[in-house]
Structure formats: C-alpha cells, structure tokens
Amino acid sequence: MTPTSVARKTLLAAVPLLAALFLSAAGQPTVHVAPMDSVGPRPVEQQTRSSIVRDYLQAWQSMGTALGENRPDLLDASFVGLAKDKLADTIREQRSLGIASSYRDQSHDLQVVFYSPEGLSIQLLDTVEYDVEVRDHGKTVGTQHVRTRYVAVLTPTESRWKVRVFQSGS
C-alpha cells in the first residue's frame, strides 16, 4: 500500500465523518438517554419514558426560539411556574437592553433521577453542550460553547410534561 493510497483511503473514510459533523451541526442535537429502569420511587411508565424526553427536548427548542426572538409567549408551550417566570424575566431584560441570545443545543446526556410516588413530578439531569450567541441590537457580540449540567423538574399538564424547574449547575 503506497502512502498516496493510504492518504486517499483516510480522506475517503473521513467523508462520512465530516458529513455527520455537518449534518449534526445543521440538524437536531445528539441525545443520549440513560436507562430508566431503576428510577424511583415510582417506576417510569413506558409512555412517560418517551414523552418526558420528547417534551424536555421540545422545551429546549422553545427556550432557544423564545430567547432568540425575545418572545416570552413561546415559552407557554413547554414551561410553567418558576421556570417560565424566570425565563420570561430574562427575555424582558434582554428586550429592554436590545439584546438577544441564541441557544443551539448540540448534545444532551439525559438521566432521570427521580419520579415522585404520585407521578406528579419527574426530575432529570442533563449534561448538555450548546452554543450561545449574543447579539446586541442585531450585531453579534460573541459566541461561546458551553458544557454544563442542567437540573430540570417536569410536571404533567393536560397534554404534556412541562418544565417547572430549570437550573444549571452542579
């Protein structure tokens, strides 16, 4: 095998990798969910397992759009109570300062740690990576890549789980 052919093969092998990189950059975040079999004190129902992840990820989308467009009304679909109030306050502050921030989540590593006995709250930890870009009156101030851990408590509403506590930190 000649060095040229090795280089060529290496480059060819890199194509799908690069494609995946581009695709992931352009599309949905990668999500890893830890098994929920040993979550307590209440076992997580099969239907709840899928809906909780779906609704939590949807909440990230809602938050990103709401903070990016400074529209607190977009929070209603996914947030409730404390989390909604705090995010709405942030949006109001941003709007008054002429600032907008874009959150682009790239990966989530989710672990459900608590499901309350009566089924009225579920807590999950999310090791998340995202880019946050800040714009001041439409002009980009800067972008930072963040990796942190979020604690979220979700509670059921009529049609979906909504985020009630949303807080990062360890």
């Binding site: 903070l67 942030t90 300062l97 600032i99 101030v141 990062s168």
Partner: peptide, 13 residues
C-alpha cells in the same frame, strides 16, 4: 468596554 453577562436567569449589559 462593554460587559455582557448572559444566562437563562439574568441578563446584564
């Protein structure tokens, strides 16, 4: 200079 502090809970400029 201008300092920006941005988080999901507070915003400062």
């Amino acid at each position: 200079a201008t300092l920006y502090i941005i988080g999901p809970g507070d915003t400062i400029r």
